[in-house]
Simulated assay, not measured.
Amino acid sequence: MNAETMEALREHRKDREELVIQGRLKYFSHVKPEDQPLIGVLDDRWIWAKDKRLKKERDEKALASQVKALPTIEIEGISVAGQLKYTVNENGALSAHMLYQILKGFFAMCSATAGEKPGEGKGPFMRASTHWLRHTYAHKALKSSEGDLSVVQGLLGHKNINTTAIYVKADMSERIRVAEKLKSSV
């Protein structure tokens, strides 16, 4: 990550620490400052709103035992394969699934603002996803590194450089620029 992104994440972490002090993240008040997630939930109410299935199960257990329900946190390690693993972990970090859902919601708002028609699925915002963002990052990294696949391979975490090579797709202007530089062999 670049320094600007890291600074934004540090500011987010400071916001979370302040929310713990204010009592708005009481379920995560036990988390040491150094264990606070870089990207995490900012309000205890979010947990209840975003995982209704688990909330319902917890409420039923609480009703049966006459004990206040626990927050709806399901830890990845106890999840069943193929099911939603968790919304947040024990430190309040958002799961990959929840980050995906948040971004899809954001893209849906962008789609509506851009006037894309619901149900068509052809507009750029309707097609947007976390994988789309990863592709954009990969292409920008390739351009910034002047095509250094090994650097981009490390940034993307690919084990095989052939996976990284999939992102090497020169645009038409780049092809024309290179073709113009070539000397004719005739």
Results as ranks from 00 to 15, higher is better:
A69N: 04
D59S: 11
S145N: 02
S173A: 13
A49C: 10
G115V: 05
G121P: 00
D51V: 00
I75R: 15
I21E: 15
G40W: 00
A128R: 02
L156P: 01
T136W: 09
G82A: 01
M109S: 13
E174K: 07
L155W: 01
E76G: 09
K61M: 10
Y27C: 08
I102F: 02
V178T: 05
G92N: 02
F28K: 03
A170M: 07
Q22I: 07
R10C: 08
H135F: 09
A49P: 06
I21P: 07
A141K: 00
P118C: 04
E76N: 12
E34Q: 13
Y27A: 11
D44E: 01
K181P: 13
V41K: 00
A49K: 14
R10H: 12
S150G: 07
G123H: 00
L19D: 02
K26T: 11
L9W: 02
H30W: 01
L54M: 08
F125G: 12
V80P: 08
R175N: 10
T130P: 01
I161Q: 01
F28C: 04
P37T: 10
E180N: 14
E146R: 10
N89I: 03
T5I: 15
V168K: 04
G82F: 01
E34H: 07
Q153W: 02
F106K: 15
E146V: 06
V41F: 01
K181H: 11
F107M: 06
D148K: 06
N160P: 03
S79P: 07
E74T: 12
G105T: 04
R24I: 10
T113I: 09
H139F: 14
K85L: 09
G123L: 03
L19Q: 08
E11W: 03
K52L: 07
Y167Q: 03
A81Q: 14
D15F: 06
Y167L: 04
K104V: 13
V31T: 06
V178I: 07
E74G: 07
K159A: 13
N160A: 03
A112D: 12
H158V: 01
S150H: 13
R127E: 11
H139C: 15
V20H: 06
V186D: 12
F107R: 00
L38I: 10
L9H: 00
S185V: 13
L70N: 07
L133Y: 07
D59E: 10
A114T: 08
S79T: 06
L19V: 09
V41P: 00
K50P: 05
Y167I: 02
T136K: 07
N2D: 12
M1P: 06
I47D: 07
L63T: 15
A141C: 05
I47E: 13
I102P: 05
G82Y: 00
H135V: 01
K143I: 11
A64H: 04
P33E: 04
I21N: 14
A114F: 02
A81I: 12
A141P: 08
K183L: 13
V151I: 07
P124Q: 09
I176V: 08
D148N: 09
E60K: 10
E17D: 10
E76T: 10
I78Y: 13
R127V: 08
V41D: 01
V80W: 05
V151S: 08
S145F: 02
